[in-house]
């Protein structure tokens, strides 16, 4: 799996025939795609946790949120780098960007809640509640940002309308490779979390 991920990383950019700046777009798409999956996982896992209270859902939500924050940070950074030469600015308060920015803040706050809630069960419940609220909040943020700025056209996709078949291939490869990378990281992260849990349990039994 690792091999395929790395192969795609090196293969994808060589396939590109557009200007150099445009290449970052594949990583931009890849990261935002993965972050979206991650936050959907957080939402679903949080609901499942609140319903049946199993630890594995909490671990899944937490690890996925962490990775989501990491990838959405990359999305914002790559997007800024892309926007500087293309739009002539690092940042605009366009509805999409506003929503992404709020999304980024919301999931950082999610991690902040986890870091400050005390014992495990409380931490899990509080963050699950916050994750659900935050996820429902995002469409409202997007609609509000759209209404506020007037109906602005959605600036998205590579310039020039249609997409080259080769570029589409590269895009698909990046999406697949990023998804694989995400799954790999997620699985490893869950393993670490479980090891941490076991160590804590051992320390606890040692002490008593």
């Amino acid at each position: 799996m690792l091999v395929s991920t790395y192969a795609a990383f090196i293969y994808a950019p060589t396939e590109v025939i557009m200007g150099h700046i445009q290449r970052i777009f594949y990583f931009h798409m890849g990261t935002v795609w993965v972050a979206t999956i991650a936050f959907i996982i957080v939402f679903v896992a949080s609901i499942l946790y609140l319903i049946n209270g199993k630890r594995k859902w909490d671990v899944l939500a937490y690890t996925s949120a962490e990775l989501g924050v990491f990838f959405i940070t990359l999305t914002i950074i790559t997007g800024s780098i892309w926007a500087k030469p293309v739009w002539g600015t690092w940042w605009t308060w366009d509805p999409q960007l506003t929503t992404t920015f709020i999304l980024w803040i919301l999931y950082i706050v999610y991690l902040l809640i986890r870091a400050n809630s005390g014992y495990d069960e409380k931490k899990a419940k509080y963050s699950a509640v916050f994750a659900i609220i935050a996820f429902i909040d995002l469409p409202l943020v997007y609609i509000s940002a759209r209404v506020m700025r007037g109906i602005s056209p959605v600036v998205f996709g590579p310039g020039g309308g249609g997409i080259e078949p080769k570029m589409l291939n590269a895009l698909l490869i990046t999406l697949v490779s990023f998804t694989l990378l995400f799954i790999l990281l997620l699985v490893e992260r869950i393993k670490i979390e479980n090891l941490k849990y076991q160590i804590n349990k051992l320390i606890y039994t040692e002490n008593n």
């Binding site: 709020i102 706050v109 902040l112 809640i113 400050n116 005390g118 909040d137 943020v141 209404v147 506020m148």
Partner: peptide
């Protein structure tokens, strides 16, 4: 109020979520 940060945490978690209310 039940976290370690107490009242400090409230604005941090509340303000980003109520952004739609503020905007509208």
């Amino acid at each position: 109020i039940n976290t370690k940060l107490r009242e400090l945490l409230l604005p941090v978690i509340l303000f980003p979520v109520i952004i739609p209310v503020i905007i509208n």
